[in-house]
């Protein structure tokens, strides 16, 4: 289902992972961190790089490039996205800041993680994919 507004008034945190740009709702983006050495989780898929402890919470780190089938960006920085069900760290090689995203935001694919990436969106001159955070969380929770 397409998100309704062609020119969203919502604010997003825009960041890059590798050569691709992503956006998450600004109210979900808690902070940007440099994460320490990670602990691998037994049975984890490759895109789940590991976990680290942050303020007494165990936070999983997801490499967005690997998740969409690309090559790891190798970044040690991540955007922490906070939901009621927990926190996710999404690797970020560059953080552009908070801005609006224009465009009719429809799923970028029929299945897999691309269902939870919406676009084509524009943030300034950048092509960005808006991450449906709740959907991504469900996808990851199902082992995706």
């Amino acid at each position: 289902m397409a998100l309704p507004e062609p020119e969203s008034r919502q604010s997003y945190l825009v960041f890059a992972c590798g050569s691709s740009w992503y956006a998450v709702p600004a109210e979900s983006a808690a902070e940007v961190v440099t994460f320490p050495e990670l602990t691998r989780v037994p049975g984890a898929p490759a895109h789940l790089l590991g976990v680290f402890a942050h303020r007494s919470e165990v936070i999983p780190v997801v490499d967005m490039s690997l998740l969409v089938g690309g090559v790891s960006a190798g970044s040690r920085r991540a955007v922490l996205v906070r939901l009621s069900r927990g926190t996710l760290a999404l690797t970020a090689s560059t953080v552009a800041g908070v801005s609006s995203v224009a465009g009719v935001l429809e799923p970028l694919g029929p299945s897999g993680v691309h269902v939870h990436l919406r676009g084509p969106g524009k943030s300034g001159a950048r092509d960005v994919a808006v991450i449906d955070i709740e959907g991504l969380f469900d996808h990851l929770s199902q082992g995706g």
């Binding site: 680290f52 936070i59 999983p60 929770s141």
Partner: peptide, 26 residues
Amino acid sequence: LPPPHVTATLSGGSLRGFILVRGALW
């Protein structure tokens, strides 16, 4: 420490959580 929601089903549900020992998570 409770495991993150997204790790709950990994390793066949055998993950009980994490302990912090000598500064590292196990």
